[in-house]
């Protein structure tokens, strides 16, 4: 009964909710319809009315530039960083949760402290390390620090999930003579699939959209990733806004696909990881 009273339609809240929907979606809508305009149309049409003669010229222009190269770079960087982050963090969270000594508590503290370190403040030393290691202007230069800075949050979230795996399961495997590596591979890995998908999508999104590391650690066009490419498109096509916005749409499509596929996991997983 209390539930039904609580669910009574709340009209002011509903109206405010739809207003925010407009705020959230109008800019996205604007980007999509503007990318379909011709360059002349951009200067004369009403920007919020869809073009009467949609044109894909901007998309052609973007795809004929080196967009596909930047796309491949972004995919390599994102996959590389996510693989490193998730596999190292899974092992570390196993030690944090299943470890017995003082060391596991200390490890946990290191990663909690790590959450508070702002990546932006470390760019000068990171730049120094990367140049000293002769990795400047390579994709690896983006992958390594991006993965490293994703580790603390990933460990913390995975540890939260791992604590919920019942001890009996570990015990019964131990009785069967399994070591920690086998438990990690054949017990933890399958049970934690949803959690792993969550952190992989979340970390992937961060790396895919990351701007600062690519900006300071790469330079040449053939090592460029998408966010940086958008920024340089903007300098290159200053008068051709529809083309710049077509690049924005194209760079977001892979993420949108991932969001549609993994939305349920992402939202429920993140809320479980953050919300406790």
């Amino acid at each position: 009964m209390a539930r039904t009273t609580r669910m009574r339609p709340n009209v002011p809240a509903g109206v405010a909710g739809f207003l925010w929907l407009l705020v959230a979606l109008v800019p996205v809508y604007y980007v999509v319809i503007t990318s379909l305009r011709t360059q002349e149309g951009f200067f004369s049409d009403n920007p919020l009315v869809p073009p009467s003669d949609p044109s894909l010229d901007s998309y052609r222009l973007v795809l004929e530039s080196d967009f596909l190269l930047y796309l491949v770079n972004s995919i390599v960087v994102t996959l590389g960083a996510v693989l490193i982050t998730v596999s190292l963090s899974l092992m570390a969270s196993y030690f944090v949760v299943r470890g017995t000594g003082r060391l596991s508590g200390m490890t946990h503290k290191v990663f909690l402290l790590g959450l508070a370190i702002p990546l932006q403040a470390t760019i000068i030393p990171v730049y120094y390390l990367i140049t000293e290691a002769r990795m400047y202007d390579t994709l690896l230069a983006i992958i390594l620090p991006s993965a490293a800075f994703a580790i603390p949050l990933t460990v913390v979230i995975l540890s939260n999930f791992l604590r919920d795996v019942p001890n009996e399961l570990f015990e019964s495997m131990r009785v069967d003579g399994a070591g920690h590596w086998r438990m990690l591979v054949s017990l933890v890995l399958p049970l934690m699939r949803p959690a792993l998908v969550t952190v992989a999508v979340y970390d992937g999104l961060q790396v895919w959209n990351g701007f600062l590391f690519p900006l300071i650690l790469t330079q040449s066009p053939d090592q460029r990733v998408l966010p940086l490419a958008l920024w340089s498109f903007q300098g290159q096509f200053t008068v051709n806004i529809p083309a710049v916005l077509a690049a924005v749409v194209l760079s977001t499509l892979p993420v949108l696909a991932l969001y549609i596929l993994g939305r349920r996991h992402l939202v429920s997983g993140l809320t479980a990881g953050f919300g406790k």
Partner: peptide
Amino acid sequence: SGPSVWMAMPALVFFGIFGLVPLGGV
């Protein structure tokens, strides 16, 4: 016995190099 600290080592070293060392480096 619990798992060995070596399981956490790669993550610790990795984060140490790019997260903690730069903190002193700066």
